[in-house]
Structure formats: structure tokens, C-alpha cells
């Protein structure tokens, strides 16, 4: 079923869908992992904090330039070389500036996903712990 639906798509679009599916799966896994012993989900803020440290997703929606970039840079510094970090960025200035600055720093932008109103940018760490 999956094969048939994606066969008609261009290779790039197929990659995007696969990427989205992987991201979605990761997100669900994060949500389940974040449940407490009575199967309650934590508050939104706690999820974000956990995902920053455990599954490397950084929610910078609402964080203006250049603080969004600085926060991304600080997290990347603490990750291993080659580690993947997903960053949620607002449309407008942030999505224009942050990926560009990260590339200038030697990081690789491996995907930008339009989430309608914000973007999920996947960064491969080109620096990190020394």
C-alpha cells in the first residue's frame, strides 16, 4: 500500500513524505516516552525540555532572531559531531536567517519541512564536542 501510494511521486517528494513519517513516528515515541507512571502526559513545556535533551528537538517558535540561532548553536555545541537536531522555527525572519547562519557555521541542513505556520528544520551537527 505504501509502495503504491509513493510510486507515483517524484523521488524528492517521496523522500519528504518518508522524512515526515519518520518525524511523526519519533514524535509519537517521544510522547509515549514522556508519559508518567499513571500514563498521563506532562505539560507542553516539560515535553519541550525533555525533547531538547533526549531526542534533540528544539522548539523555538516564538523565539526571535538572533536568540533562536544562539539557542540552536548552544545545543549543537553539546551534541556529538554528526548528531541530528530538529529545530522548530517561525516563518518570516527566523526561517530565512537561522538555517543560513547554521550553514555558515559548518552545519548541514538536511531538511526543511513546512508545517503550516512554522517550519521543522533538521540539522546535522558539523561541529559539536571536541
Amino acid at each position: 500500500m505504501y509502495d503504491r501510494a509513493t510510486d507515483k511521486l517524484a523521488p524528492g517528494a517521496r523522500g519528504d513524505i518518508l522524512h515526515y513519517a519518520v518525524g511523526f513516528l519519533q514524535h509519537i515515541q517521544e510522547l509515549y516516552a514522556s508519559m508518567d507512571s499513571s500514563f498521563n502526559f506532562p505539560l507542553q513545556e516539560k515535553i519541550t525540555q525533555k525533547s531538547e535533551t533526549r531526542v534533540n528537538e528544539l522548539d523555538l517558535r516564538g523565539t526571535p532572531c538572533p536568540i533562536n540561532y544562539v539557542k540552536t548553536k548552544l545545543v549543537l555545541e553539546e551534541l556529538e559531531f554528526g548528531a541530528i537536531l530538529a529545530v522548530l522555527l517561525d516563518e518570516g525572519e527566523p526561517i530565512v536567517n537561522v538555517p543560513r547562519s547554521l550553514k555558515e557555521d559548518g552545519h548541514e541542513i538536511s531538511g526543511i519541512e513546512d508545517k503550516q505556520g512554522f517550519y521543522r528544520v533538521v540539522v546535522k551537527n558539523g561541529g559539536g564536542k571536541k
Partner: peptide, 10 residues
């Protein structure tokens, strides 16, 4: 100054 390539959090 955190933005600077040689400074950062470290």
C-alpha cells in the same frame, strides 16, 4: 558574543 564562531557557550 555567543554568536561569534570562536566564542559560543564554551
Amino acid at each position: 558574543q555567543l554568536i561569534l564562531p570562536k566564542v559560543g557557550g564554551k
